[in-house]
Design a protein around this nucleic acid. Sequence first.
RNA 1: GCUGGCGUAGCUCAAUCGGCAGAGCAGCGGUUUUGUAAACCGCAGGUCGGAGGUUCGAUUCCUCUCGCCAGCUCCA
Length: 647
Amino acid sequence: MSTIQLSLPGGSPQSFPKGISAKEALEKLAKPVRSDVFAIKVNGIEKDLMGPVDTDGILEPLTFETSEGKEVYRHSSTHIMAQAVKECFPTAQLTIGPAIDEGFFYDFAFERPFTPEDLEKIEAKALEIIQRNLSVSRRELSKEEAIEFFKHRGESYKVELIQGFPEGEPISVYAQGDFVDLCRGPHVPSTGYVKAFKLLNSAGAYWRGDERNPMLQRIYGTSFPSEKELNAHLHKLEEIKRRDHRKLGKELDLFSIQDETGPGLILWHPKGSLIRLVIENFWREQHVAHGYELVYSPHVARLDLWKTSGHVEFYKENMFTPMPVEASEYQLKPMNCPFHIMIYKSHLRSYRDLPLRFGELGTVYRYERSGVLHGLMRVRGFTQDDAHLFCAPEQLAGEVRKVLKFVTFILETFGFTEFHMFLSTRPEKAVGSVEQWDQATQALESALKEGGYPYQEDPGEGVFYGPKIDVKIKDALGRSWQCSTVQIDFNNPQRFGLTYIGEDGKTHQPIMIHRALLGSIERFFGILVENYAGAFPMWLAPVQAKVLPISDKHHDYATQIEKSLRQRGIRVERDLRNEKIGLKIREAEKAKIPIMVVVGDREAETKTVSVRQRNGKNLGTKTVTELMKLILDEIPETVKKEAVFFE
RNA sequence: GCUGGCGUAGCUCAAUCGGCAGAGCAGCGGUUUUGUAAACCGCAGGUCGGAGGUUCGAUUCCUCUCGCCAGCUCCA
């Protein structure tokens, strides 16, 4: 019998008989083997723990702590769910069921949607299957055998999947009890390895994601190695619900979307508008300080403009229907770029003028299918914090570098400190030469590298007119949101015939950069609401302090305090209602006002105030000067007045 | 757009297996003059999302329609 050499990462190799199970080998190499190991990587390839090892190699045990391990665990979990569905509803057909970020799903072809009662039944059955601790085994079949096997079982979707597989390669199936599923694997050794299991919800999903295909019934679930971790996850889901900007937007009276107005169209109420105003003021000041020129453009324009820009050709499905005006047609703008281009074109430009940076908080309207609208996150009318930079090719990398620095500065001010950058390269359907793409992609890459930003490449995810960098931020709950985007465009300069006169006296074509930092003001605002759970930091809080007199004897003093704070530019309100202090505090607390200023006899006599924070902390007695300092100190320097400038 | 669920007072939610629709909070009027998350009493408030249909009678059953929610797809 031949032997093989196996080792742990960084460990010394030992000899084993060829075909030994990974588990046995591991038991000899690592003492003791952790009980939560349920799969293995052999030379970097994920394998079953019970499977044979045939080659020399390094064994890396997999647990739930690794992302690969998590995937295996959830994948096994979804098989358990699928088995439960088949046991409860034998006529349901299997389709696909992958692990996803925080759990798993499985799509079934079934004659009707699953009800919440069905889910309970399925979950109970799944727990029973876990109890049974069925061992999970792998088998390989030829393509023909596999087709025959699943045909026999009435699994026509599986047959369709297998028919799409390459010829000649063996096809693996996994079995646990009577349940057999087509699967690449690996899986946990037995169903009992899944400890905490929960089904979450069900909804329709198209076969292969195509709406022309039949609708399947998708069930979502999640699983963890312990009840404790599962509960923590369920709490997080509750927290997400609690922070939902649609709910908080109503409670805090920030905005509304009304049927009579139209879906996807936002009405900004005074408190929400105030926050927006603070955001926009900050944005404008910083743009001016960073060498941008602010512009304004109309909401509609001749359809011809959108033909020139290529939007009619490439973006039609997202545009509102054009409207006839006199002899021509006008289009509600889905983007701002053509206007900024027209401003560029209004003069003959010299290389000395470049780079030109036109910025605008430009409101655009896009037709979105009704089913995709979602609060402030996905709407039909929104304001982009847009800018278009026109530069010479050699300035490209430098401009991108500056934009990235600007992006992180702005987002950090809003309290986001974790960024993930993505570089998207040439898609299949693209304009421009491969050389142009390479050059632009290199400019983006070098800006990322020079800035020291780690990034991930998204091959083929660029826009048709050029490569781009997307920046995603992480919020307080660890969710990521894409806000900023920096896109290079060599298409539009060409379409619009943009030029500048170079040092050589000849005509050259500038390169355009489209960029947004916050993305959409509506969406970014929604993200802020959820990130802060409605408790905005001092500089954004629509009401920064509320003066609460104990009784109407103290109204004059309260009014006086209010006036002093207002004079220092603090956004302050007072509550002169004939109510007890407890109620006034409760309501100020619910409105998430950062500072409550309680004034009664004691304060009026000593010319002081009693200060309470919205977190319930009582800061005790302060002078008005101390109170003002307290509030103003909480406002970041960069948003106070002067903008910080950096190169 | 598609599949499923939902739509009752400003808000959060009851009820009616077809028979004049109910509570808390908010609002208004009064009493109370209050010390760090809800004082008390009273009043008012709804063509039950909209349009048709079935019925002696529809908020309830049926059809269509609008909107919302969860997904699919798409995306700032």
